[in-house]
């Protein structure tokens, strides 16, 4: 049986890679993909603890997180298409009018 620490370390690494991608790239689509990566890292911890504690609630939570992720991606990509229609780019440095 695999110790639970291995899953926690793997999830920490995957979550950090997701954060790195959000900070590193300027393409909004890649940033949405990296948000998916972070959500999946959290899902992995949920399933690992659910298996570890022998409690199905964690897996039900993963099910709900998947529903929320699907809704989030659909809305995010629709917003992306709207901004592309107005600015002709997916570069997030163009979208800084709310910053100052």
């Amino acid at each position: 049986m695999i110790p639970i620490q291995y899953y926690l370390w793997l999830s920490a690494v995957l979550f950090s890679i997701g954060v790195l991608g959000v900070l590193y790239r300027r393409n909004a689509i890649i940033i949405l993909m990296c948000i998916e990566l972070m959500l999946n890292a959290v899902n992995l911890v949920m399933v690992a603890f659910s298996n570890f504690l022998n409690d199905p609630s964690g897996q039900v939570f993963v099910f709900f997180i998947m529903a929320v992720a699907a809704a989030e991606v659909a809305v995010g990509l629709a917003i992306l298409i709207m901004t592309y229609r107005n600015t002709k780019t997916t570069d997030i440095n163009i979208l800084n009018r709310l910053k100052w």
Partner: peptide, 8 residues
């Protein structure tokens, strides 16, 4: 981990 790095 490898393919997550390649995504970035």
């Amino acid at each position: 981990v490898f393919s997550a790095l390649m995504v970035v």
